[in-house]
Design a protein around this nucleic acid. Structure first.
Lengths: 338, 338
DNA sequence: ATGAAAGCGCTAACAG
DNA sequence: CTGTTAGCGCTTTCAT
């Protein structure tokens, strides 16, 4: 069927070891003459090395397992890009597994990853349930946890600078002159939301604006959650004129809600949101966003993992919170998609 | 280090073959008593079978290679979901490779896929350059080409029903009473665009509306391409009142352009676009879209590939164009994100 | 119902 | 500089 290394050796009239040395360019030197013969034979047979055999022998697969909740979400999709590209450029393949936010599947993946003998794992948790992660930690596979709950399972974790994002968003609104600023958060007490909230509070404190708990609305994360949260805010006796939202879907909900109430954005109401779902923000030039470079985050987590795999000491910068920045789009006076 | 099957066999005081039969539940029967002993030993050692060794022995990897241009694009992201989930549920893993629309990388992937001994490949081409695909075809790996250029390389291909989509979009506009209907297409003569154009023309013919080549604008595929294409259309002596766009990004560009020209959508101008980039359409309730179920397309391509791998005769339905449908969103009078 | 052993294709230690 | 060979951990045929 497919040619093996022995076929090549036979045709080139050398030993199979020599063929190895040619292909791997080492660890032993090969005379140019022999090398040419071997290369010729390889070409003639259309020989392709068998990675499976190689992996078995080497006790290494040059594969990393990537567990994500959902490819469909643009946030994760970009992260995946960054990971896959970096891995590939460093000679690793990526096995993609998506949990569909399902803990049961996560448990299955731990087993799969173990039998597949992947060299390492990048794990984006489906929920705050860390049980599957603990199970994974038992296997002693090098693991990087992306965001959220890594610390709880005692694993290397990558996080975004939620605190600074919350701070930047709020300071921006303050600089625009707002005194009453709402924060539409997530329902669950994720570390994400907490960090963003702390940033919000510190920015207020810095500007000596008193903190009013009424201005914190526990939203959801979808468009309509934002819309309804805005209505709650507007119904307050002293409604806010600026709003910071946990993510961009809710920010868009806020924009829509504002329109329904006859408010002009950004004249009557300023809105800033994290751009978790980037495509959505992209269609809304009037929206100011807190941007985190997900591709870069993916790149970093891959680099961190590869260091772990090779038992190198990772650059400490890699585990610091990834920086965020505020992006104000040119509001050309151009209008909304309807 | 990690326990092997021999360790299990030794501990259970059976042969390693017996352990195999227990694990694989065949092909030879094992007495309940022995089975229990083996299971016990497995548990005790925390044994996990080594898939690499298994793959080598079986000459099969239960892995499919998935080559896509770009994870970032929501269109592909959904397809990937469908493929990955279906593959996993059938015992296959997916190796993800993204070409970043780069033909050079595609060539590299062909080699990688061969040395990895994947059982099959699902390939979404980066461009209309079929050379990498021809190279892949040489390897005789079971392959499904997603959309576009498959036929040219003589491979199984999956396509969307572009024709019917174009027809549905145009008929919808006709039913709304429009007589002058523009089509904003792609620049390159992809089969996609061609099919959609034919559907457009046939719908016009059916309604006995004369075809006017001036109403066909060769756009790009981005938001601003749609915006500018609309301006070209509006500048015609007899401007259209309905527009069909190749994709939803351009449709959104049209909406924005319409706003700039003071046109009210859908009162003064009706717009229908393919929803290739679903997230974008989602934020625009006034937009009517031609929907294709990308998750389902992914599912189908995986099923088709698995049939190919097992040398079964695939369900002929799988290779028929995937159906599309027209989706009119509730236009609640609710407004645009700004 | 079970054991022994060959061999999948590769790497690298050992022996010239 | 090159050849020989022992495994890596598994499946499965051939014995028993």
């Amino acid at each position: 069927m497919t040619a093996t290394r022995d076929d090549v050796a036979r045709l080139a009239k050398v030993s199979s070891a020599t063929v190895s040395y040619v292909i791997n360019d080492g660890p032993r030197p090969v005379s140019d003459e022999t090398k040419t013969k071997v290369l010729e034979a390889i070409h003639q047979l259309g020989y392709q090395p068998n990675a499976v055999a190689r992996n078995l022998r080497m006790q290494r697969t040059f594969t990393i397992g990537l567990v994500i909740p959902d490819t469909h979400n643009p946030y994760f999709a970009e992260v995946v890009s960054g990971i896959e590209e970096t891995a590939f450029n460093n000679g690793y393949k990526v096995i993609l597994l998506h949990s569909s936010y399902n803990t049961e599947k996560e448990f299955q993946f731990v087993e799969l990853l173990r039998t597949e003998r992947v060299d390492g794992v990048i794990w984006i948790p489906a929920s705050s349930n860390v049980e599957p992660l603990k199970e994974l930690a038992l296997s002693e596979l090098p693991t990087v946890v992306f965001d959220r709950v890594g610390a709880q399972a005692d694993l290397q974790a990558l996080v975004t600078d939620n605190y600074h994002g919350g701070y930047l968003a709020t300071r921006h609104l303050i600089e625009l002159g707002h005194k009453r600023i709402g924060y539409i958060s997530r329902p669950v007490e994720l570390s994400h939301s907490q960090g963003r909230l702390r940033g919000y509070m510190d920015a207020l404190a810095e500007a000596q604006i008193p903190f009013d708990p009424e201005l914190i609305i526990k939203g959801g994360f979808l468009l309509d959650d934002g819309r309804r949260a805005l209505f709650s805010l507007l119904d307050l006796p002293c409604a806010p004129t600026g709003v910071f939202t946990y993510n961009d879907m809710m920010a868009i909900g806020v924009l829509r809600g504002a329109f329904e109430r006859g408010l002009n954005v950004p004249k009557d109401l300023s809105v800033v949101g994290f751009d978790d779902i980037s495509q959505a923000a992209f269609t809304c030039p009037a929206l100011t966003t807190i941007h985190l470079d997900k591709f870069e985050m993916g790149r970093r987590s891959a680099i961190l993992l590869m260091a772990l795999i090779n038992k190198e000491i990772p650059d400490p910068k890699l585990t610091q919170p990834a920086e965020v920045r505020l992006i104000t789009r040119e509001t050309t006076g151009v209008a909304p998609p309807v």
